[in-house]
């Protein structure tokens, strides 16, 4: 029962992430949608698989290791993309404040 709930939640989170990538205005706000929704959706789906699979305990633990690696790597990649985009000259659109441009003119 609970694995269907987790699977539905993961797929819904992925769909809202895709809508966010299509609707947000610039690179940085799109990265918000990509990073968080991918991490949350993939972790929910992997948790549902780990609960529902018919296998010994160590195979379930391997799926949890995969979820841990996704949670470790995904924010790092988004940080690298955001910093690379800023260094190559893509400015955020309509910012309230941009303190990074104050310190790195």
């Amino acid at each position: 029962m609970i694995e269907y709930l987790l699977l539905t939640l993961g797929v819904l989170i992925m769909i809202f992430g895709a809508i966010g990538i299509l609707r947000f205005p610039d690179v940085y706000t799109r990265l918000h949608a990509a990073t968080k929704c991918d991490t949350g959706g993939a972790m929910n789906i992997l948790l549902a698989l780990a609960i529902s699979i018919e296998a010994p305990l160590l195979t379930k633990l391997k799926l949890l290791v995969l979820a841990f690696l996704i949670a470790l790597i995904n924010p790092m990649i988004s940080h690298a993309i955001a910093r690379g985009a800023y260094k190559s000259g893509i400015k955020p659109q309509t910012p309230v404040v941009d303190m990074y441009a104050w310190d790195n003119p």
């Binding site: 609707r23 972790m43 955020p92 910012p95 404040v97």
Partner: peptide, 24 residues
């Protein structure tokens, strides 16, 4: 925190009430 942030991104994507900026 992760579940809350997912719902918050869904809310921002539907309503578009964003107000972005870079703070230190």
């Amino acid at each position: 925190r992760l579940i809350e942030s997912n719902f918050k991104v869904a809310k921002h994507a539907l309503l578009m009430d964003i107000n972005p900026g870079i703070v230190k």
